[in-house]
């Protein structure tokens, strides 16, 4: 999650953007969705965290937070749209809970929020009705579903490290200790990187050139 340093250090900041991004990241970490989700929190309208290019962007105001949704950088850039203004912390989180779960519920496979939003009949207004006015009567259900995900979070690596059975797969060869002999690196600017095909003839076949 991207954030700027916020009111704690910055003379322009009006809210604690790092604090909010910690709350949001810790709340939604591990949540699986139809596609990846990017977040950012900016501490003022100068927008150093570039929240308007994210799926969920939060920008601090004098009175609270402005919420932007369905932005995208990457291949097909799209500005996020202003979804709600001057929210307090609790309402902000409630809207994001509902928004994310509604997206997860209705999006197509591998569909980013920006494309989902463009295909949504009724557009932004409809989305606002569902999320803010609860026009479908779903809000409570969506929040509960999100709360379940939050409550059952577990670090996948911490979980796997405790179970030798799960680690069994992490072997290059099940019947041999060696690494993959076809992986070659070369040094560049003080670090190693994969060797290009044209560089391979320089490398002794049997050992890594390190």
């Amino acid at each position: 999650m991207k954030s700027c340093v916020g009111s704690t250090w910055c003379r322009y900041g009006v809210q604690d953007s790092v604090g909010m991004s910690l709350v949001l990241e810790n709340r939604y970490k591990g949540l699986r969705s139809p596609h990846k989700l990017k977040f950012a929190v900016s501490g003022c309208t100068r927008e150093c965290a570039e929240a308007q290019s994210k799926d969920v962007g939060v920008i601090a105001t004098d009175k609270g937070w402005n919420l932007y949704v369905c932005g995208n950088g990457g291949m097909r850039p799209r500005h996020a749209e202003l979804f709600a203004t001057d929210l307090d912390d609790k309402t902000l989180i409630r809207y994001i809970d509902r928004f994310l779960m509604f997206y997860i519920r209705t999006a197509d496979k591998l569909q980013r929020t920006s494309v989902w939003r463009e295909s949504l009949e009724g557009g932004l207004e409809y989305l606002k009705e569902v999320i803010i006015d609860d026009s479908l009567g779903l809000a409570e259900e969506l929040e509960a579903q999100m709360q379940h995900v939050v409550d059952t979070y577990e670090c996948e690596w911490a979980n796997a490290l405790q179970d030798p059975e799960k680690l069994k797969r992490f072997r290059t060869f099940v019947n041999d200790e060696r690494g993959d002999p076809d992986i070659h690196f070369v040094k560049e600017r003080g670090q190693r990187r994969p060797a290009r095909a044209s560089e391979l003839h320089l490398i002794p076949v049997t050992e890594e050139a390190l």
């Binding site: 069994k168 290059t172 060869f173 099940v174 993959d180």
Partner: peptide, 25 residues
């Protein structure tokens, strides 16, 4: 003999070293 049944993962793959070749199982 390449490896043991225990080395396999159901409905998924693992790789074995076979005389200089890499075999996905």
């Amino acid at each position: 003999v390449l490896c043991s049944r225990d080395d396999l993962v159901a409905n998924s793959g693992v790789v074995a070293w076979f005389d200089g070749a890499q075999v996905a199982l």
